[in-house]
Nucleic acid binder design. Structure first.
Lengths: 123, 123, 123, 123
DNA sequence: GTGGTCTAGACCACG
DNA sequence: GTGGTCTAGACCACC
């Protein structure tokens, strides 16, 4: 479920956070579903439990999880989270697009790039 | 000319590198123009000369500068650099677009975002 | 394992880089083996940790190492590196050979020199 | 006669020294021929006279020139210099060859490289 | 004056 | 404990 890339320069806890975010927004993890326990996931990935703990803490802070003492962590999901996520992405998109323009990448080139993901007439 | 953002978590030398890359690709700095000296820029930004030195070293490795010992550093520019830069950007763009699709951002939304930078019918 | 030559005019970090390159290409350091930590090596060679850090950074840029934050640096190795290295060497060889010819060193002299390393009939 | 390569990392005075060495060993500059004056050469190459001075000093130290006060510098040449030069080159060649072997470059590859400069049956 | 290297000592993020 | 960044201050080679 989680794949770590040690050659990636980003810290491990960040990779875990991002992976779970995707799974939750995807719907692969359903609302109120129980998350794997910190210890079991640490064993599975053979990394330090502190690292998992840190990832879960950030996911909770960002609203993707809620924790019940003594029972574990559970998936939270509502539409507002999706909205927030979309806004963050659009900001990143804007930044990249601005750089594209500065570097003289043509409008057509960008559209071509987009069509790879959004096939004509489907969305 | 250079603005440092200390709240940015990226290292200072990297911010400097990126800023100069932009200025050179933009044409704001012309080929063979003299760069500010390591020491003078360090004073101007009130940071340590070593940090500037590090940024310049990376810019030189990446082909944006050439250095003449005892004289200073100078802007280098050729078309191939522009090409490389464009390729890197298109990869980043692809990554963001893929995330956009995963997060259910519509094709129209993206085009709207693009039009902000590429006004209709101009490019 | 590492010997520094202070009378050598090349910078220390470069000597370190070259030495490790050799050890890795030799196979004396095996893939995924842990490199000595920045600090420990600095103590061992009685030089500043920054200097080791600089050497490691270059080795990583050149693909000889990968780094896991908080864990250490590890040897990377693949065939393509060997190929690149060979190409670089052949260029250097050509330069030296050209000079040899200009300086009237005979073909036989060069072959004699070569046989010292490549004993007849073995390679 | 002298071409400077500013993108070369070696210091300028060293490039000048090497160039004159070649010209003298080649025979392009004949024994007892007058060298261009420091000032005139400095003007021609539009560099600092100190730099030329330094190059000439080294050439004199290495036995390639002799200087007569008030008259200028003159080319010296004798067989022993050639011998010395050849020895230096053979040392460099040995170093490169040793590295070649360590990097698994085959004997045949090296001979092929050599034949480019020493065409079969000519030397 | 220029860039390049090195030291000593500090702080941070990560695991 | 690991690597990564930064500062302060020094020395060198080069022009």
């Amino acid at each position: 479920m989680i794949i770590l890339d040690y050659s990636d320069k980003r810290p491990i806890y960040e990779q875990i956070v991002e992976r779970f975010e995707t799974l939750i927004l995807n719907g692969a993890l359903e609302p109120d579903q129980k998350m794997p326990s910190v210890r079991s996931l640490a064993v599975e990935l053979s990394i330090n439990p502190n690292t998992i703990q840190r990832a879960y803490a950030q996911l909770e802070r960002d609203g993707y999880l809620y924790t019940i003492k003594g029972r574990g962590s559970f998936v939270r999901f509502d539409e507002s989270m999706m909205k927030k996520q979309q806004e963050k992405l659009l900001v990143r998109l804007s930044q990249v697009l601005e750089e594209c323009k500065r570097t003289d990448i043509s409008r057509e080139e960008i559209i071509r790039c987009m069509e790879k993901y959004y096939e004509e007439g489907r969305v």
